[in-house]
Design a protein around this nucleic acid. Structure first.
Lengths: 159, 159
DNA sequence: TCGAAAAGTTAGCCTTGGCTAAACTACTTG
DNA sequence: CAAGTAGTTTAGCCAAGGCTAACTTTTCGA
């Protein structure tokens, strides 16, 4: 079923993986670039959703603090989210999510949670799992995500 | 040992993870931004190393094709790698890695291989594993990487 | 061997996502 | 109720990483 010559090389010195065909290779990098375009948006929307859930409101100061970024950067991003129809923002008021925004936030939250708990159930420490999950979540395909979820389920049942 | 209040929430609707403390939260995003700064460089260096290994030379056309990017983009990047002392490039000639470049390429290759084989041994298809690995590799900490390696070893022994 | 095709380079443009500084609004409290 | 402080917005800067177009150099084949 794999559409690429089998090379079950171990990830060990001396047995280099063959290069994938050119076209496939470039698609890998393209996928990464695509992910980078959307991931900041998703992170903001997810964070706004989390703030709304846990604190009742999403203010740009809080976002700036949590993202570790200046308020100006947040403002610029919020305008973009507004244009994309993901958040509703009235001047000097705190933010709300549109339906599309809510959907994206929920999807991100779920995915983030799966990756995080997958790492935890592998035995990764909480702190590291959080950091790695934040970076990894946008690069995990549906296929891999499903496998992670099944892994968590199996692990939960076993323990 | 976790330095954050225990909340073994499952990644399921209805049981939202609490927000981490502000400072930790912002460090997560900072880590992602840091990774983004270095990952392109690592990808180029890794690719150049792979091309040198598998084809004997690394020409910018090949890099452009594999990266799915224009030659001009490659040229700009190569100048940067040159300034950083990672590659040696003479005008109109193909590229070579410095010792620092070789070290980075080897490290990236190893890490990439571990992530790729980890995904495969989870049962992810080759094609998807390659795409996900390309995106994930730069966000996987040493701690997680070690765990992945042990997982692969266990899986290999078992099968 | 020489001329055309391929490879490499340079210049200049665009968008993103950071930043600071300054202006403006809202909240709080004396 | 009037400051003053805290929060928000705007303007303008910068670097990164894409691109196209135009140019130069190298390579190859007739």
């Amino acid at each position: 079923m794999t559409d690429f010559p089998e090379d079950s090389s171990a990830a060990r010195p001396g047995i280099p993986d063959a290069l994938p065909p050119c076209e496939q290779h470039s698609q890998q990098y393209a996928a990464v670039r695509d992910a980078h375009e959307t991931e900041l948006v998703e992170d903001y929307v997810e964070l706004i959703g989390d703030l709304l859930t846990h604190q009742g409101e999403a203010r740009s100061t809080d976002i700036a603090m949590r993202m570790g970024v200046s308020q100006a950067t947040v403002a610029k991003m919020v305008r973009r989210l507004n244009n994309q129809g993901l958040v509703i923002s009235k001047p000097y008021r705190s933010l709300f999510l549109t339906d599309a925004g809510k959907a994206m936030a929920e999807e991100s939250r779920l995915r983030h949670g799966i990756v995080l708990n997958f790492l935890r159930s592998l035995g990764v420490s909480d702190r590291t799992a959080r950091i790695d999950a934040e970076g990894m979540e946008h690069h995990v395909s549906k296929e891999t995500l499903d496998i992670m979820q099944r892994f968590i389920d199996g692990w939960a049942r076993r323990s």
